[in-house]
């Protein structure tokens, strides 16, 4: 077992445990903090796959901006353990069983697929994830989607302000 595999298993275990803790935490603030841990673990996976640009963008956009927005909203509403609405135990169990069944079916499908058993993801090297290559592709072939996404951001900003203002 070399260093890459050790890091892979550590990050996978961290991501799964933190994702479970997002669900199991009663306090919404703790859920947000566990979700930030998941995002850090996924960024670690990106670095392991040498997708450096996405690793940094994931940290800045998700862990930095989006999660701070969630924390602001939760603290603004003063949500805590006491005000947390709970479903009854039967509905929780039904949800867990149906999600588990979906996971089992999908994993059995992946196990049966013969084409992918020999495929591997290239770790640590390869420069397609570096910002030079991605920037060239983004501004040559994907200029129009890039500009459209800026219009999307503008409309989202206007929409958030219109929805959020007191009428």
């Amino acid at each position: 077992m070399n260093a890459t595999q050790i890091v892979f298993w550590f990050l996978s275990a961290l991501a799964l445990v933190s994702a479970l803790m997002v669900l199991l935490s009663k306090n919404p603030v703790h859920s947000v903090l566990w979700l930030i841990t998941v995002f850090f673990a996924i960024s670690g996976h990106y670095i392991l796959l040498n997708a450096q640009f996405l690793a940094i963008v994931n940290l800045i956009v998700y862990a930095g901006a989006i999660m701070v927005l969630f924390l602001f909203v939760i603290m603004l509403m003063n949500l805590n353990k006491q005000t947390e609405p709970q479903k009854n135990a039967w509905l929780k169990m039904a949800g867990a069983i149906s999600g588990g069944c979906l996971l089992m079916i999908l994993i059995s499908l992946v196990k049966q697929a013969n084409e992918i058993t020999t495929k591997t993801a290239r770790m640590k090297d390869g420069d397609i994830g570096l910002i030079g290559n991605l920037g060239k592709a983004l501004f040559h072939d994907y200029v129009v989607p890039f500009e459209i996404s800026s219009v999307l951001f503008l409309s989202a900003m206007v929409g958030a302000v219109v929805i959020g203002k007191k009428d």
Binding site: Q5, L16, L23, K87, S98, V110, K111
Partner: peptide, 26 residues
């Protein structure tokens, strides 16, 4: 790493998300 490990990890995270949508009310 074999691609299957990544597929199964992503499936597990995705199903945890689905269970969360189904079981939480917040």
């Amino acid at each position: 790493m074999p691609i299957q490990y990544y597929i199964i990890l992503s499936l597990a995270l995705f199903c945890i998300g689905i269970v969360g949508v189904l079981t939480r009310r917040n």
